[in-house]
Amino acid sequence: MSDLPPDPPRLRAILAHLERQVAEAETIGIYLRLQRDEVRKALARATSAPTRAQARAPQRREPPRRTPSAEYLMESKSGPDDPLPVVVHVGACTIRQGRRTPSAISPQQARMVLTDTVIGAEPCPICRPENTLGIDLA
């Protein structure tokens, strides 16, 4: 673009117009990227969903699986910014935070998690797993 006018008012007008075009292009680019991401998610759902033929096929019914009751359960953090602590429960305890799915752990793992200061796990104040494990956390 060597044919630009020499005077500042026209150069400012051209610059303002170009800046508006760039801003619009960025907005359109953001919108298109969002749309692209939604299409990718829909495609992933569609490819993982059963086909119509698979859906019509007779389903073999399996008896419900019984999971063995765990001796101890651990509610881990859902991420590094999760404000809730790691909590250990006796397996039959029904008083849990509810937002996190507990993992079954062995008595040895429960002892380690409760006594490791780096993990900083807390015992459930209701079921008191430290009592059944025979450890003193005081």
Rank of each mutant, 00 (worst) to 15 (best):
Y72D: 06
H89W: 07
R111G: 03
S106C: 08
S76C: 09
P63W: 10
C124A: 07
E38R: 15
V22W: 07
V22E: 12
D81S: 14
D82H: 12
T27G: 14
L4N: 09
T94I: 09
L43M: 10
T27N: 12
P68N: 02
M1L: 02
P83E: 05
A25V: 08
Q97W: 09
C127H: 00
I119R: 13
R45Y: 09
P63Y: 10
R100L: 11
E130Q: 14
E19C: 04
I95S: 14
A44P: 05
K77E: 04
A121W: 02
D82S: 10
A110P: 06
V87A: 01
A23R: 15
P129Y: 05
T101G: 12
A53S: 07
A53H: 02
L18A: 12
T94K: 15
L18G: 09
D136F: 00
C127K: 01
G98S: 13
E38C: 03
L133V: 00
K41D: 09
A16I: 02
R65F: 10
R128D: 03
R45M: 11
H17E: 13
T117Y: 05
T101L: 13
I30N: 13
T51E: 08
D3I: 04
L137F: 04
G29A: 15
A138Q: 08
Q54W: 03
R100A: 15
P129W: 04
Q21P: 01
S78A: 06
E71P: 12
S69D: 12
A23T: 12
S76M: 08
P107I: 00
L73S: 08
R40G: 06
G98F: 11
L32Q: 14
A110Y: 04
D116S: 14
V118C: 06
D7E: 13
S48V: 02
Y72F: 12
A44V: 02
T115R: 14
A92F: 05
L137M: 02
A55T: 06
E75Q: 14
P64T: 08
A121I: 05
R33Y: 10
E26M: 11
L137A: 04
A104R: 15
V118W: 08
R65C: 01
K77G: 02
E19I: 05
Q109L: 12
R128S: 04
C124S: 01
N131Y: 03
L18V: 11
L73F: 11
S106N: 08
A49W: 07
A110I: 07
T132E: 04
S78V: 01
A23W: 02
C93R: 04
A104S: 15
R20P: 02
P8H: 07
V90A: 07
V90G: 06
S48H: 09
L4Q: 10
R56W: 07
I135E: 03
T101A: 15
A42V: 00
S106E: 03
P107G: 15
R100H: 14
E62G: 08
D116A: 13
K41M: 09
T115H: 10
V22I: 14
S2Q: 06
L18C: 09
P64W: 08
A13H: 04
I28V: 13
S69P: 11
P125R: 15
K41C: 00
V90Y: 07
R128W: 03
P83Y: 10
D136K: 02
T132S: 13
L4A: 10
P5G: 07
